[in-house]
């Protein structure tokens, strides 16, 4: 009962903070816009520059930041719970390296690839990585071996990184530069199509997250102890792996591999709300969403009209904040 009430309070507070961030963020930007004109229905949308800046440039971007930040933080929680390793990030198992390889190929060999866009190519690369890691982790094991999963993921990361370097080596200067910039992460999605395409994947992933929160708690006691309490360990592990991979792949396809959110936010939230996954998961989702919206707002305004890659801001702000919290908690 206590837990339920506490969970409800945290979820409501988290959702409220995310909502406030997403609603307020579009009012800040590199250009000054007339707010009254943005919401003036008498001006046709096609002629209304302020409204287009607000609704086509800033709002989708704030939404993308919220979606990507929340997704990476939640995926980080699930991967850390699955692998029982605090250093795990959503990128540990090679999903982002696969997505990056796909994106690099699209940037460099775009003209010859069957799938047109960088987004689609990165999603395909993520899928390939998930398939390989899972096949390796299942081979010669009943169920999934988390040790093999981790080793396979780390190895695949290295392997894909080498392929990424190769693709960059054969590309020209301009392509290499664009590729490097993609790797820094970018939330300027220019409309809602990208978010719409990722939405079904994310809905499935979050539905699974909601289901596995409790079993993940029991898994922290060890696989045998969890099984003795009625947890179907293999099914939970499989669900956790696929849902978190799906979520990570979708997030990376939207914005590139934005660092830091997926490892720091879960730990930060645990320092504040404890270790219960039923609270940590929604809290990390909301915190990650709010945090990335904030970071992106800073990234696009601090050096305006130039923009900083948002991954720089997440690390510069998140790092010291996390260390401060860590020291205070001790």
């Amino acid at each position: 009962m206590m837990l339920l009430r506490r969970r409800r309070t945290i979820v409501i507070a988290g959702l409220a903070s995310t909502l406030v961030a997403v609603v307020l963020a579009p009012f800040a930007g590199s250009t000054s816009i007339a707010v009254a004109r943005v919401f003036d229905p008498s001006v046709p949308f096609a002629d209304n520059l302020d409204a287009q800046i607000f609704f086509l440039a800033r709002l989708p971007r704030a939404l993308a930041a919220a979606v990507v930040g929340g997704t990476l933080a939640a995926a980080g929680v699930v991967f850390q719970g699955l692998l029982q390793n605090p250093l795990t990030t959503p990128y540990t198992l090679g999903v982002s390296a696969g997505a990056s390889l796909g994106a690099m190929c699209a940037i460099t060999f775009g003209a010859w690839l069957p799938f047109g866009t960088v987004t689609a190519a990165s999603l395909a690369g993520a899928g390939l990585a998930v398939f390989i890691v899972y096949a390796l982790a299942r081979a010669r094991h009943r169920g999934i071996s988390t040790t093999v999963l981790l080793l396979a993921g780390v190895t695949l990361n290295a392997f894909f990184s080498a392929l990424i370097l190769f693709v960059q080596y054969v590309s020209d200067f301009a392509q290499t530069f664009r590729a490097i910039r993609w790797l820094m992460g970018d939330l300027d999605v220019a409309g809602y199509a990208t978010l719409g395409a990722a939405a079904p994947l994310l809905l499935v992933a979050f539905a699974v997250f909601a289901w596995i929160a409790r079993p993940l708690d029991l898994l922290t006691l060890g696989a045998d102890a969890a099984a003795s309490r009625g947890v179907d360990v293999t099914t939970v592990q499989r669900a956790a792996f696929f849902s978190a991979s799906l979520a990570t792949g979708a997030a990376v396809s939207i914005a590139g591999p934005i660092g830091f959110v997926g490892i720091i936010v879960p730990h930060l939230v645990r320092l504040i709300v404890g270790a219960d996954h039923r609270i940590v998961l929604p809290a990390a989702t909301c915190f990650g969403a709010t945090f990335l919206v904030l970071c992106d707002t800073i990234a696009r305004t601090v050096l305006a009209p130039l923009e900083l890659p948002v991954g720089i801001i997440t690390a510069v702000i998140g790092g010291p904040f996390f260390l401060w919290l860590l020291l205070r908690a001790r």
Binding site: G29, S30, T31, Q52, G110, S171, A190, G191, P305
Partner: peptide, 25 residues
């Protein structure tokens, strides 16, 4: 420089010259 959607809208060019010497079309 990388121009965001917002920057392109704010600068409102009358002509866009797009140079595509490599990559996808």
């Amino acid at each position: 420089l990388q121009a965001s959607t917002e920057l392109m809208l704010a600068r409102a060019p009358d002509v866009i010259i797009e140079i595509r010497t490599s990559g996808g079309v």
